[in-house]
Amino acid sequence: MNTQGKVFKYPDNVDTDVIIPARHLNTPDAQELAQHCMEDIDADYVRKVRPGDVMVAGWNFGCGSSREHAPLVIKTCGTGCVIAKSFARIFYRNAINIGLPILECEAAAQEIEAGDEVSVDFDTGVITDVTTGKTYQAQPFPPFIQNIIRCGGLLNSLKEGVRHE
């Protein structure tokens, strides 16, 4: 699995309230919610993002509320991957559970610039900045989590587990 696209860069502590403001949480519909992705921090994101594009951010990405709507809107509007220096724990868990690829890599998050073309190999954790030619090694997921992703999310992995018992 991999993705390639243009980089959108964000600062430290991007919270789930700016990823998807609570005023829009009166629907569980992913397509409808995705129209408001990043609205309060980058009103142009939804208009500019193309399938496969990559979000790059600082420390503690996705802090705040447990709303699964946050990784869901990022995924639904076509974002291929999020790279950050660190992720807030509920966001991290939710991203895995719904199948949004995310990678922690301090050096990549520091050096990659907005607008760069970046490719990411999720199996190896290798991040390549095509614009600068530089590569970065992120920690790939542990096998337990790889299995959840391979099955297409937590619930599918549970069903797989039941089948094997």
Binding site: R67, R93, N94, N97, L155, L158
Partner: peptide
């Protein structure tokens, strides 16, 4: 705190 998918899995299992 967890997300909705964890809640669904928790309710089921």
């Amino acid at each position: 705190g967890v997300g909705s998918t964890d809640m669904a899995a928790g309710m089921a299992t």
